[in-house]
Design a protein around this nucleic acid. Structure first.
Lengths: 114, 114
DNA sequence: AGCTTATATAGCTGATCACTTATATAGTGA
DNA sequence: TCACTATATAAGTGATCAGCTATATAAGCT
């Protein structure tokens, strides 16, 4: 399953957003998502499975619970694909590198520390 | 239709990649995509419609042809969403902003022009 | 062991969507 | 105008997928 297929679902995107704040148990995620989307516990569990099986999330059992955490690598790949277009829509990003170099030169000359 | 739903299709992603190199006629896109995915002309045309209607591409008629161009704004929105996770996987991007600010201060003080 | 809580899986179903063929629209040039 | 090329739309179909209910698995507690 391609990264963008995984990200194509609003529930999964929401779960990832929640996980971005830190680890969450399946139950916490289910409660939040049920509230917003009005779907059942198994529905959420299936989305968690998709996230797991595609490497977007990892699980770690803690007692009774299963704690989920976001895995950023696949998100990075998606971002990388979009990045091939980014040079054009955000040209100032290229300029950043230049800015840094100029800033360093300026500081060297003025003797600014820190 | 959400940005990631549009990007969820491999044919549409390929079309965007092709458009990233510059304007292409519907016919050129159709030829390339038919080759790679083995789908019909109407199938490609429908994908072009999705890209148009969701703001990922614009068209401009030229004689008989219709020339497509990529529109980067919605790609930027998708990238922005991913960016909320990026702070963690690419922390140096945050540092860039700081660098710029520091560079500007340094230049102001040293009186560097241009 | 038996009950409860937490989470996952199985099996089914309806909606969505990408594809197909057939046809419509529109520009070009004889 | 007629034929030709380029592209879009229409209508129908099958596959995929997200949802549901019911049930299984597994840990904690009494």
């Amino acid at each position: 399953m391609h990264a963008f297929d995984v990200l194509g679902d609003p529930v999964r995107r929401r779960i990832l957003e929640l996980l971005n704040d830190g680890e969450r148990s399946a139950g916490e995620l289910t409660a939040a998502v049920r509230e917003e989307f009005g779907i059942s516990q198994p529905a959420v569990s299936q989305h968690l499975r998709v996230l797991r099986e595609n490497g977007f999330a990892t699980v770690r059992p803690e007692g009774n619970r299963r704690l989920y955490a976001v895995e950023r690598a696949p998100l990075g790949e998606a971002e990388e694909w979009l990045g091939r277009f980014a040079e054009r829509w955000r040209p100032h990003l290229d300029a950043l590198e230049t800015e840094i170099a100029r800033g360093r030169r300026a500081r060297r000359r003025s003797g600014e520390q820190q």
